[in-house]
């Protein structure tokens, strides 16, 4: 009995000792590396989905049709991407990922969103009052967008025992502002299987 007690005491000391030497370690990793921690929507998903969907969008007919007909690149604006999923997804990073992919493709022109426009207009107003004539940008010369990109993120979630299946579906729609025509529909699906441990 005595020996058992000593063993237990030593085990306790050992365990508290181990807890105490947990220190913070920092390791820098490439932002392109895949790191799945909780199985939730993360930066990798946002990046992969935006780049795949934009490259799909750029390879479809609506683009060449427009370019041939108008002799210029179409002008786009990104509208709302609604999060209708089970998770609190930061749609702003997803939208900026989309914008970056679109602009860098060089095939489309891009205009500022309605929120950004307000700030630009205020600046232009300020220029009209304070900037020298040669450097002023006058109002009324904004480029109107031809298409608006809208989207939503949906999830289906299933769990049994220690296994969970997460299914994400991201739908993007490109709508012509002139006549409400939908010129492109994109869809990307992600499926993740999670196994959770029984003991900690």
């Amino acid at each position: 009995m005595k020996r058992k007690m000593i063993v237990m005491a030593m085990a306790t000391i050992l365990m508290t000792g181990l807890n105490a030497c947990k220190t913070t370690t920092v390791e820098r990793v490439d932002t392109d590396s895949v790191q799945d921690l909780s199985g939730n929507w993360n930066d990798t998903d946002s990046r992969l989905v935006s780049s795949r969907m934009v490259s799909d969008m750029m390879s479809r007919k609506w683009l060449t049709n427009y370019q041939v007909k108008k002799g210029a690149n179409p002008v786009l604006i990104v509208g709302a991407v609604r999060n209708l999923s089970h998770e609190h997804i930061n749609t702003r990073t997803f939208i900026s990922d989309l914008e970056r992919e679109l602009i860098n493709s060089g095939e489309v022109e891009f205009v500022a969103s309605s929120k950004e426009r307000g700030e630009i207009r205020a600046e232009r107003q300020d220029q009209a009052n304070n900037a020298s004539m040669g450097t002023q940008n006058v109002a009324g010369e904004e480029t109107g967008a031809d298409f608006m990109l809208k989207g939503q993120i949906n999830t289906i979630f299933d769990a049994a025992g220690d296994t969970q299946v997460k299914y994400y579906q991201i739908d993007l729609t490109l709508i012509s502002l002139k006549d409400n025509r939908k010129v492109w529909l994109g869809q990307k699906k992600i499926k993740k299987v999670l196994e959770t441990g029984r003991f900690r």
Partner: peptide, 17 residues
Amino acid sequence: LDEARVEALQVDERLKQ
């Protein structure tokens, strides 16, 4: 409201479990 909706979905999931 969209984020509140996320919670509504999560509560459904939690109750199912």
